[in-house]
Computed example of a mutant assay.
Amino acid sequence: MKTKDFYYDLPEGLIAQHPVLNREESRLLILDNETGNIEHKKFKNIIDYLDEGDCLVLNDTRVIPARLFGNREGKDEKIEFLLLNNIEGDRWETLVKPGKKVKPPRKIYFGDGLLIAEVLSIEEGGTRIVEFHYDGIFQEILDKLGEMPLPPYIKEKLKDKERYQTVYSRCEGSAAAPTAGLHFTKDLLNRIRDKGIKTAFLTLHVGLGTFRPVKVDNIEEHHMHSEYYEVSKEAADIINKAKMESGRIISVGTTSTRTLETIATSDGKVLPQKGWTDIFIYPGYDFKIVDGLITNFHLPESTLLMLVSALAGKDNIMNAYKIAVEKKYRFFSFGDAMFIK
């Protein structure tokens, strides 16, 4: 299957530059993955398409101010760091621009030396492993020096940093938000639970897999970057009980989907565990546990577009995107949502 098969034409004006005023007032495209039938609603109407006994699985990761700007000692040029994964202790995997100026054992200084990054190695794919040196508490320093890592297609400055966090974000560590969850309010989640719909929370820290484009012609040759996940016994028990009682497992976002499909057994159960996943889901994939998906509209030729095509069918998805463009839906991180049921 070719990468170009997942191309669609998107007018730049449909790329959302800011979130809607009220999270649950985003538009919602409902796609039936069996018939291809499409409906147009508001996100708050999602509750009408969820049944008692269903289980929503949400990613509770929290975005850190992962973008840092520093310089080499005695130099004025700006060097940008994007923190991707906390390997252990003060060692992080990072994206660096411009990379040619940042090689081992180079040191980069942030905030007049308040934070210093020592470059340890260059990894396959060009990321750097660095170790940070500082006095005090790392997260407090990061909050002071770092910026929210908004995607490059968002040109407007975000006035409220919490709008790039889900209302249920808890575990700090992501370089990007699990954007499907941005549409939920605490009130909507309460109404969903009052209807008898279960909620389970897992964690996947979004890293380079979100940013890396597909650069090969044949999608089977693309390699996904690893991202860290954790699934608790409590979450696994909720999901397994819902599945056993014939409820649908509906993942909120592609990150929840990838985590669930990583840990699911062949008989459609999940076990509590933590680890790293580089699962790449594209058409032809046989889903083990996920029945439905709430997601945003994704970039052309992206791994996320390939994932949703695997669940709903490529023809259904490409048709839905064509209609979404015609109906002027808002696309990408701050855009509208789709429910594949």
Rank of each mutant, 00 (worst) to 15 (best):
K103V: 06
P213T: 07
A310M: 02
R191H: 04
I197M: 03
I64R: 07
K288G: 05
Y321Q: 00
P178A: 10
G13L: 13
L82V: 11
E124G: 07
L204N: 11
L14Y: 06
C171V: 14
I279L: 14
F280P: 09
T254S: 10
Q139W: 07
D54R: 08
D187P: 00
K101T: 10
L50V: 09
E140R: 06
A177L: 04
L145K: 11
I47S: 00
K198M: 11
V214A: 15
D160Y: 12
T3F: 13
D291M: 02
A180Y: 01
G335S: 01
L56I: 11
H205F: 10
T35M: 06
I38K: 07
G53N: 04
D76V: 10
L56T: 06
P19T: 10
P104M: 14
R27G: 06
E118T: 08
N85Q: 09
E140Y: 00
G53M: 02
L208D: 09
H40W: 00
D51K: 01
L299F: 04
S251F: 12
L158D: 00
I122E: 15
R27K: 15
D267A: 00
G113R: 12
L304I: 08
L188D: 07
E39G: 07
S169R: 09
G292T: 06
Y321E: 00
T277C: 03
I122C: 06
I279A: 03
N319H: 14
T199V: 12
F297H: 05
D51L: 01
T94I: 15
L29Q: 01
S226Y: 04
E88L: 09
P11H: 11
R23P: 03
H223I: 12
Q273A: 06
Y229A: 13
E124A: 12
L31N: 04
Q17K: 08
A337M: 14
F43E: 03
E301F: 03
E156Q: 15
F331Q: 10
L202R: 03
F339Q: 05
G209S: 06
V119F: 09
S121K: 12
D315R: 14
S266N: 15
E162K: 14
P272E: 07
K2F: 08
Y282E: 07
A264N: 03
L307T: 08
I238P: 00
R170A: 14
K215V: 15
T254M: 09
V63I: 04
F280N: 10
E162R: 14
I141F: 01
G126I: 10
T35H: 08
I47G: 00
L305I: 08
K161T: 05
K314Y: 13
D9C: 05
T61P: 01
E227G: 12
T203Q: 12
A16R: 05
I154Y: 02
L208F: 13
G74D: 04
K41L: 04
R330T: 01
P19Y: 04
I38G: 03
E25L: 13
Q139K: 13
E234Q: 15
V290E: 03
P213Y: 05
I239R: 01
A235Y: 05
R67S: 02
T179Q: 09
N85H: 14
D51W: 01
Y164T: 11
I122F: 02
E221Q: 15
R27N: 08
F43I: 10
E156G: 05
N37K: 15
K322D: 03
I15Y: 04
N296F: 07
E326Y: 03
L29F: 02
E230W: 04
N59C: 13
K198S: 14
L82C: 07
L120H: 03
L31C: 08
T61A: 02
G70N: 04
S226D: 00
E34F: 03
